[in-house]
Write a protein that binds this DNA or RNA. Structure first.
Lengths: 231, 231
DNA sequence: TATTATACTGAACATCTGTTCTATGTCAAA
DNA sequence: TTTGACATAGAACAGATGTTCAGTATAATA
């Protein structure tokens, strides 16, 4: 037995993972992916617990279909009601609370943890109209520090709204995580055969060429730039 | 070839089915489920067409993962561009609908009627979170045309949110109505004794001096700059 | 103690699923 | 006509995936 919610700690973990996996990837996890996430490689255990979660009405399943897991409203409600630390207050309908995950310095990039893109840990949020975006599930915000991106018409204090996607079109501006350097930087990305060109918007600056595309991890693309002025 | 969209009829069917399947089941379809839906039980055909859809940027895929299909923004846009059009809903509480009153060209200013700042006549609006602003009663929006304000970090297509005030501090950026010229322009305003200096943010451009301050009518000051990028 | 219920472990299986390979048909350009 | 690009068709395969079965462990209960 786990908590007073009637769910095992593992069951709660599973439920939460299903939610977070869906947010990140756009489709539900498989049984074994859940198992790896909660530390049990045995599908029967997950299967058993999924059965319990379904009996509790927190999820729905499509028998014999891969990734046939669906969170019910009750499941979502359960997750918002039992936070791990703090759950941000529900924004009014029509608004999106976009987590402000940190800062980004264009010239001298600072790392942004690539694993933690959940709402947790974001003490600040940016509220925008949901209608502006077609899909708001994978948006986050970064505050720009420094004036190195001045020629991209982005300067100190600006807020950039990012979409957490793994793929960008040629020429789109993206937040790029360079694995070997452990840096994040804002650049326009061009896929040139088997190398990647990271082009600063400033034409006087030379592009960075990455010969190993696996070193380049797209954190997301810039969807919007917001600048607030005097009052 | 199918339509003028560059997509085969089958590819369009596939794209639409991915969307509808996701809406119905909460997870993406498998390749063979797509095949059955579009009348071809051959996975290679679907695989081939999915590759095309991915190249077109309409979907994203996670290689070798079952149901690893995700609609991109472009994909959603494509679908909503074709079928029955949607009716925009009323803005919910917590939002401000800021009237988009027209365009402003920094270099070659165009007139904006100073008398009509009501909501009427504004066919477009910009929706923002009410919490961003102290007071939302006197806000309006203008779309920037042209790149003359490029050194003010404002460029073509940007939306500027204005506060309709008659008075600005020295150095604040304002929309200025020049009575004799019947023009509106975006400039930083400096009150210098009995004349007014309208300073373009571009340092290479000369300021405009207005000797008769009554000719200068402050339309409002720039409160926010919004730039939307790809998707 | 014996019983029952629940959660877990381990293994195996049938099917599903994405991918790859080869071959065919179609249509437009050379 | 030939050529090439492209959509399609069929088959096969390795791995993923959901499911099931037998057995173990632990705790609550009679």
């Amino acid at each position: 037995m786990g908590t007073d919610s009637g769910l095992t700690e593992r069951q709660e973990k599973i439920l939460r993972y299903i939610y977070e996996f869906g947010r990140e990837w756009g489709f539900p996890p498989s049984i074994r992916e859940i198992g790896a996430a909660v530390g049990t490689p045995h599908p029967s255990v997950i299967s058993h617990n999924l059965k319990r979660l379904e009996e509790a009405g927190l999820i729905e399943r499509e028998p014999r279909r891969s990734r046939g897991i669906r969170l019910t409203e009750a499941g979502r409600a359960f997750l918002s009601a039992t936070p791990t630390e703090m759950i941000p207050p529900e924004p009014p309908e029509g608004l999106v609370s976009i987590p402000l995950l940190g800062e980004i310095v264009a010239g001298e990039p600072i790392p942004v943890p690539s694993s933690d893109f959940s709402l947790m840990g974001a003490d600040e949020t940016v509220e925008l109209a949901r209608s502006i975006f077609r899909d708001t599930s994978d948006l986050y915000a970064l505050r720009v520090r420094g004036n190195s991106m001045i020629d991209a018409l982005i300067h100190d204090g600006d807020i950039v709204i990012m979409r957490h996607t793994r793929r960008v079109e040629n020429g789109e501006m993206a937040a790029v995580w360079l694995r070997d350097r452990e840096e994040t930087t804002l650049k326009r990305v061009y896929w040139e055969g088997r190398r990647v060109r990271l082009q600063p918007a400033n034409p006087s600056m030379k592009p960075i060429y990455i010969d190993d595309p696996t070193q380049v991890e797209i954190q997301g693309k810039v969807v919007m730039v917001i600048r607030r002025l005097h009052g």
